[in-house]
């Protein structure tokens, strides 16, 4: 499969702190690549390096086959759009003026396509309203619209749903899916909101302490995610004692809920729980979440 972006052992050090520690990854063409990691794992640092905002201490990357150290990388970046951390917009300009400014920066011969872009991100009715008066969601969508000026093939979105309300999250999700499906734009999206990412991503790269721990397709991930039984009981402490006697693997979710992995005999479990004085309310088949997969992969760290 052709890769849009490949990184080779990227290292980025800030004085004594190592943000990226030999990060190597591959973003396949046409994918929505979920870049998953805790806060401080190195997600934003990687995006800054790709965008040319910062320089790697060691290692390199290729973007559309162009080496990061070569002069050609600027040409490759012309095929790219990005929203890094906060949306990059002029707050004292309207949405339309912001797009016009980016058209000029790109050197596009006319402003044709601006109304379509505004419509695409749902900002066609903002009129003369200045961006400083926009909601966070509107600013985020304007940031994406600016990143889309010049019809990029590759979009980098750094935590695009941070701080958004539920409707804003849905809007951004639908927009990303639309861009990927209708315009065949490859998207690299960094996030630590795993539930949301699991609704979008076709590929994942799990990053921890500045290194890629695992790269996997969504399809493969689904296969690898273990099935479990989610049980609701009156007391998970008593449930844990019972499960220990059965030698079963489990994860306690809260005081009344737990996930049990592996084959279990419901009849034996009910009997054992009854003897332990624990009531069983419900049992449901449940897939291991992306979150659980990630935790299993990188362990519960200082932030976990």
């Amino acid at each position: 499969m052709e890769n849009v972006l490949t990184t080779h052992g990227l290292v980025k050090r800030y004085h004594k702190f190592t943000a990226l520690d030999g990060l190597s990854m591959n973003v396949p063409k046409g994918s929505i690549y979920g870049f998953v990691g805790r806060n401080g794992a190195g997600k934003t640092t990687l995006i800054r390096l790709i965008c040319g905002l910062q320089f790697a201490t060691e290692g390199s990357f290729t973007l559309y086959g162009m080496e990061s150290g070569s002069g050609e990388i600027s040409k490759a970046r012309r095929r790219m759009g990005a929203v890094v951390e906060t949306p990059s917009i002029y707050l004292d300009m309207t949405a339309e003026d912001n797009l016009k400014e980016q058209y000029r920066v790109l050197g596009l011969p006319s402003f044709k396509g601006i109304s379509e872009l505004l419509k695409l991100v749902g900002l066609e009715n903002t009129g003369k309203k200045k961006a400083r008066n926009f909601s966070l969601g509107m600013r985020q969508r304007l940031g994406i619209a600016i990143a889309l000026c010049g019809d990029p093939d590759f979009l980098l979105l750094d935590e695009p749903i941070n701080g958004l309300d539920p409707q804003g999250i849905i809007d951004i999700r639908e927009l990303i899916l639309k861009l990927n499906r209708e315009r065949q734009i490859t998207v690299l999206i960094s996030s630590h909101i795993l539930d949301e990412l699991s609704r979008l991503a076709t590929h994942y790269g799990f990053v921890d302490k500045g290194r890629i721990v695992k790269e996997i397709s969504a399809e493969q991930l689904e296969k690898e995610c273990r099935k479990c039984a989610r049980v609701s009981v009156s007391d998970t402490k008593k449930l844990a004692t019972v499960l220990d006697t059965f030698g079963l693997e489990y994860a306690v979710i809260d005081e009344r809920t737990a996930d049990i992995y592996g084959e279990i005999s419901i009849t034996k479990l009910i009997d054992a729980l009854k003897n332990a004085g624990c009531e069983l309310f419900s049992v449901n088949e449940h897939d291991e979440s992306l979150e659980a997969y990630f935790i299993n992969l990188v362990g519960v760290g200082e932030n976990g």
Partner: peptide, 18 residues
């Protein structure tokens, strides 16, 4: 200063301006 405070300097670098 506006290019830094609004982050718009990134829009120039990201699309390949040196």
């Amino acid at each position: 200063g506006t290019d830094y405070s609004n982050g718009t300097i990134r829009n120039k670098l990201v699309i390949g301006h040196t």
